[in-house]
Every structure is written in structure tokens, then in C-alpha cells.
Design a protein around this nucleic acid. Structure first.
Length: 430
RNA sequence: GUGGACGUAGCUCAGCUGGUUAGAGUCCCGGAUUGUGGAUCCGGUUGUCGUGGGUUCAAAUCCCACCGUCCACCCCA
């Protein structure tokens, strides 16, 4: 078959209501953690000039070379769906001169787009939550950002993640090391697997985290990145280690950790989980002191990280939504108008409560069954009998079976009292 | 982009080496209870067997192609 032209685009998935609840939970926890730490939200466009990403992420990266969604605007501009948000964030900081207003602690969330082959934990439209801080060059910022991630995991009830950190030094130090590494590996070029030979040509640093046995063996005798660092970078790195240690966040130094994006300098880090399969990185980032200047702004140091919401959502224990406090069920046509008025009043007078309606066709039995399945605490039933008596029937669905007939005017009062009376014990049982 | 596995009810899957009307569980709907939930029992609906072509008296089953999904490589959140 030709593919169904009306089906979803490959790698761009629907998030159904069962999942959105889980996501909302994650997002609200993150929002709260950020707010408490003084981070403010920035909302950025999904589309930017393609050149912005090419210049920031790097020309010889996979993201730029083969993964970007590119298109020409009607006026001929070369645009791209953002593959990540740091570039756009830096652009916004430069464009609005945010650097002049002192330190900026920013966070963002939203979809990113990369044309990759989908697999577990990897889709073409994926979602990130990220943080960028501008204006602090000292290593205490790295510690703060790592602490922030750790606080987030705690707030989400997430355990079992491991943190690895490394330093890449300044741009100059790194390109020096690149040459050193190139000199070391070039005589062994013939021994490398095709993928690694390609890395040698394109981005020798990527050899450091090669999975190939052969390459790993060669790496044993290779010059180390740390030896290419000057005194300033070393001091910065030592201080990062000291401060992160002091925060109590446990980590491992991984000298082979190199990030794929060109703009990183000094500290880089990555949180991973063994539960995610091949795409194990949950959250990663690092310092990028040159990027603002590189993109045309006045020099401004920065550190940031981003986490993949899909990957995080796969790890965070699922929160089941709790059922509604009450479901209002009309029986018969005459009761429908009364129930709608009842809903309106309940929503207005009990703003904290979740009160749903049970409308449409279907027997009372089926609706009670449905209400029970959603975990509703009470059913408020209005039928002919109740209409004649001016009451509503309130049936407790959780815990003890109990049915009360309540004068319509006293329903709000009853529900307020019922919450104190029954819900706490009910809560425990669920 | 490369490799492998897999596409059968809304969902999870069975259907062996081709053989009559394609099954189970679940979900949904109804009944046992003329307007009263969770358990049980009874009944019912649900399918272009991914698509197209080929082999055959006969294809969900075998062959080919395409589409899609998943997993891994690559890359990365």
C-alpha cells in the first residue's frame, strides 16, 4: 500500500489523554522547582533561520547535516524547525539585550524536531524541558544547575539515574587536543571500523565514546583531554568537582564523555538511566561560554541543560488521575435541565471539586458502572422521584455503601460535610 | 542512512506444516435487578487477516514488492 496520506507523520506521535495527565504532572513539578529556584520561563518560536542552528550546533554534526527539517519561506528565507532550543534562546537573549539586565535564569519547554529513524526513546517530534543561565562564568553555576536537576528527580520521585561529568576545556584547548588525538589515531586508521574512521575524519573527539572494542583498546594509550587543559580550565574543573561534591549529588567523572554539539566549553554532563535501552540519556548539557559571542552578541558566559520529556515520562512512576468527587446523573428527560443547573451551581460554589456529568443515552445502571470505573467518590442522581420530592440522591461509591436523600438546596453543604466525614478514610482504602 | 524482527477485532494475542462460515481474552452494549455501581452468570456487536501482485482447485498461512511499527547501529534528549 501507499502510506495512508491522512495518517500521522512518522515519528510524530499523538499524546493521548491517558498520557497527557502524566505529562502535566511532570511539567507542573518542573515548573514549580524552577519557580522556587528563581528561574523564569521563556517561550521561543519553533521556527528559526536555518543558519542559526548551523552556526551554533556546528556544520559537521549529524543534526545539521541530515536531521534538520528545512524549508523555504515564501520570501525565500531558509528556515528550520528547531532541533533544540539553546540556539533560539541565545538568539533571543542577544536580540532583546537580556544580558545587560544582569544574570538571566531561564527555562523553557516544547517540541523539537529531528529527522531521525524512530526507535525507543527517539521520535522525530520530541519534547524537552530545558534551562539556560546567562551571565555567570564561575563554576558554582555548574553546581547549581546540577543541583537543580537533582531536585527535579527528587520532586518527581525518580531514582536510579546516574550522573557523569567531564570537561572539554576552552575552544582552543579542545581544538589542540583534537590535533593531538588525530596524530595519535591516524597511524591506526586502517584498524578502525568504518564508523570510527568516519569519526576520525569528521570529529575525532567522538572516538572517545566509541563502542568498538578495537577503538577502546587503542584509547588506553591515547593522550588524555585533561592533559591539554591550561591552568585556568583545570582550576575551573577542580572547583566544579569540589562544589558538586559539596552539594551531595553523586556523580562519576567520565573522561570520555563528549557532547555532540560544537558549542560546549568546559563542563559537560549527562544523566542516564539503564532502563531506557539504547537511548539512555535523560538529561544533558554543559557550559557554552563562547556561543553568545559566536552568534553576534557581546561575550556572555552561559550554562544549560535539556531533558527529554518522553524519556523522563518513561521513568517517572505513573500517577493515576484520581477520580471525580462526584458525578451528576440525570434519569429521564425532565431531570436533564435540573442536572445542568446543578452542575453550574456546584462548579461555582465548590471550585476545588471535580464534578462531572453523565449525559447522553444509557441506563442508570450503565452510568453508575461508568462512574465507578472512573473512581468517582459519589453519584448525585436526579430522577422523577427526586424531582417530585425536591431532593437529590447522593450515593457513596467508594468504601461503605451509603445512600442519602438531600434537599436540593442543601447539596453543597452536604458535599462539603461529606468530604470531611468520609473522604479521608476513603482515601486510605484506594 | 544501515541491519534485524514483526503487521489477524478498539486493545493484548492464538490460528501448527495452505483446506469449509477466522478465534480467545479484554473493552463496549444489553439482560438476570420496570431507576441503582464494583463480584458472578447469560447474551450481543466488533475484522478490506497492513496493501498490491504472484503460486495454487484452494492463501491469514507460501513467494515478491511496497507501506507501517518495533528494536539495534548511527546519532542524541
Amino acid at each position: 500500500m501507499k502510506r495512508n496520506p491522512l495518517a500521522h507523520v512518522r515519528g510524530m506521535n499523538d499524546l493521548l489523554p491517558d498520557e497527557t495527565f502524566h505529562w502535566q504532572k511532570i511539567e507542573s513539578v518542573a515548573r514549580d522547582v524552577f519557580h522556587r529556584a528563581g528561574y523564569r520561563e521563556i517561550r521561543l518560536p519553533l521556527v528559526e533561520e536555518a543558519a542559526l542552528f548551523i552556526r551554533s550546533i556546528g556544520e559537521v554534526t549529524d543534526i545539521v547535516e541530515k536531521e534538520m527539517y528545512l524549508f523555504d519561506d515564501r520570501n525565500g528565507d531558509r528556515l528550520a524547525l528547531r532541533p533544540e532550543a539553546t540556539a533560539g534562546c541565545v538568539r533571543a537573549v542577544i536580540e532583546h539585550h537580556l544580558g545587560r539586565e544582569g544574570v538571566q535564569r531561564l527555562w523553557y519547554t516544547g517540541p523539537m524536531f529531528r529527522h531521525e529513524r524512530p526507535q525507543k526513546g527517539r521520535q522525530r517530534q520530541f519534547h524537552q524541558i530545558g534551562v539556560e543561565v546567562f551571565g555567570i562564568s564561575t563554576p558554582d553555576l555548574e553546581a547549581e544547575l546540577l543541583l537543580l536537576t537533582d531536585e527535579l528527580w527528587t520532586a518527581l520521585g525518580l531514582t536510579g539515574l546516574t550522573l557523569e561529568i567531564n570537561t572539554l576545556g576552552t575552544t582552543d584547548e579542545r581544538s589542540h587536543y583534537r590535533e593531538v588525538l588525530l596524530d595519535y589515531f591516524t597511524p591506526h586508521r586502517g584498524e578502525l571500523e568504518p564508523d570510527d574512521a568516519r569519526r576520525l575524519d569528521r570529529n575525532p573527539l567522538r572516538l572517545l565514546d566509541s563502542k568498538s572494542e578495537r577503538t577502546r583498546a587503542l584509547l588506553e594509550g591515547a593522550p588524555r583531554l585533561i592533559d591539554s587543559l591550561g591552568p585556568d580550565s583545570r582550576a575551573h574543573w577542580e572547583r566544579v568537582l569540589e562544589l558538586v561534591t559539596a552539594t551531595g549529588v553523586s556523580f562519576r567523572v567520565n573522561p570520555t564523555l563528549v557532547r555532540g554539539l560544537d558549542y560546549y566549553t568546559q563542563t559537560v554532563f549527562e544523566w542516564t538511566s539503564p532502563a531506557l535501552g539504547a537511548q539512555s540519556a535523560v538529561c544533558s548539557g554543559g557550559r557554552y561560554d563562547n556561543l553568545v559571542e559566536h552568534l553576534g552578541g557581546s561575550p556572555l558566559p552561559a550554562v544549560g541543560w535539556a531533558l527529554g520529556i518522553e524519556r523522563l515520562a518513561a521513568l517517572v512512576p505513573a500517577h493515576r488521575p484520581k477520580g471525580p468527587d462526584a458525578v451528576v446523573i440525570p434519569v429521564g428527560a425532565r431531570a436533564e435541565a435540573v442536572c445542568l443547573a446543578l452542575l453550574r451551581d456546584l462548579h461555582r460554589l465548590l471550585p476545588g471539586r471535580q464534578i462531572e456529568s453523565s449525559l447522553g443515552a444509557g441506563s442508570l445502571k450503565a452510568r453508575l458502572k461508568q462512574a465507578d470505573r472512573t473512581g468517582a467518590r459519589r453519584a448525585v442522581i436526579v430522577g422523577e422521584d427526586e424531582l417530585m420530592r425536591g431532593v437529590v440522591q447522593v450515593k457513596t461509591l467508594v468504601g461503605e455503601r451509603r445512600t442519602d436523600f438531600v434537599p436540593r438546596a442543601e447539596l453543597v453543604e452536604y458535599l462539603v460535610g461529606a468530604a470531611g466525614r468520609a473522604d479521608s478514610s476513603v482515601e486510605d482504602r484506594r
